[in-house]
C-alpha cells in the first residue's frame, strides 16, 4: 500500500523538478497521440459522416464491421502493424519500426473505429428536420454537408475525446511497434509497464498520475466546449 502514497509524492517531485525522463515520455505520448488523432480524425470523421448520413447498400454490414473493430485488442494491432513495418514485412522499406510515427499508425487503427462509429452515431442521432431546414434556407450540396457536420460538432468532439482516451492509455501498440526505446519511443504507458516490471511501483503510480492529469486536462477542455 505504501507505494500508492509514495507514488503520489514521486509524481509531484518528478513534475516539479522537470525530470527529463518523465518529460521525454510525456512528450512522446503527446506527440504520438497528436499524430494518431490527426490521422484518425481526418479519416474517421468523413468516414463516420458518410456512414451515418447516407444510405447505401451494405451499410448495415459496414456498421457491423466497424462496431466489431471497436473491440480490436491493442496487442493484436501491435502485432499486425509490427508484421507490416518489420524489415521483413512489406512496408519495412519505410523504416517506421521503432519510431513514433510507427506507433501512430497502429494507434490510428485503434482510434479509427471509435471515431467512425461515434461520428456515425452522432450524425444519425441528429434531428431529421435539420437536412430539410438547411435545404429550405438555400444551401448548396457542400454547404449542406459542412453545416450538418458543424451541427454535430458536440458529438464529434465526444468521439474525439473517447478516441484520445483509448490512444493515450494503450500499451500494446506502443510496446510492440515502438519498442519502448528510451528518449525516443518510450511513452507514458510503456514507461509505466517498464517501471512496474522493474518492481518500481511508486514510479509506475507517479507516471500513471501524470497520465491521468493529461486526460483530465483534455476532458476538462472538452467539458468546457460542450457547455453549449
Amino acid at each position: 500500500m505504501d507505494f500508492l502514497l509514495g507514488g503520489f509524492v514521486t509524481a509531484i517531485q518528478l513534475l516539479l523538478t522537470g525530470d527529463s525522463e518523465t518529460y521525454s515520455a510525456v512528450f512522446a505520448t503527446v506527440r504520438v497521440s497528436g499524430y494518431s488523432m490527426a490521422a484518425s480524425l481526418a479519416l474517421g470523421v468523413p468516414g463516420g459522416f458518410f456512414l451515418g448520413h447516407f444510405d447505401f447498400r451494405g451499410k448495415r454490414q459496414v456498421r457491423l464491421v466497424v462496431d466489431t473493430l471497436l473491440a480490436l485488442p491493442t496487442v493484436l494491432i501491435g502485432l499486425l502493424v509490427y508484421a507490416f513495418l518489420s524489415q521483413r514485412g512489406p512496408l519495412g522499406e519505410w523504416g517506421l519500426l521503432f519510431t513514433l510515427p510507427g506507433i501512430a499508425i497502429g494507434q490510428t487503427f485503434l482510434a479509427l473505429p471509435v471515431v467512425v462509429a461515434l461520428t456515425a452515431t452522432a450524425v444519425e442521432a441528429m434531428d431529421r428536420h435539420l437536412r430539410t431546414t438547411l435545404i429550405t434556407l438555400g444551401v448548396s450540396r457542400t454547404q449542406l454537408l459542412l453545416s450538418i457536420l458543424w451541427e454535430g460538432r458536440l458529438g464529434i468532439l465526444a468521439a474525439a475525446a473517447t478516441a484520445y482516451g483509448r490512444v493515450t492509455t494503450e500499451v500494446g501498440v506502443s510496446m510492440m511497434v515502438g519498442g519502448n526505446i528510451k528518449w525516443l519511443t518510450r511513452t507514458m504507458t510503456t514507461a509505466i509497464a517498464l517501471e512496474t516490471n522493474k518492481g518500481q511501483f511508486a514510479m509506475g503510480v507517479a507516471l500513471g498520475l501524470v497520465l491521468m492529469a493529461i486526460a483530465f486536462v483534455v476532458n476538462f477542455s472538452v467539458f468546457f466546449l460542450r457547455r453549449r
Partner: peptide, 17 residues
C-alpha cells in the same frame, strides 16, 4: 493545421535518423 501535422509526421519519421 493538417498540413503542419503531416509535415511534422514526415520530419519526425525520417529526420531524426
Amino acid at each position: 493545421f493538417v498540413i503542419f501535422l503531416l509535415a511534422a509526421l514526415l520530419i519526425g519519421g525520417s529526420g531524426a535518423w
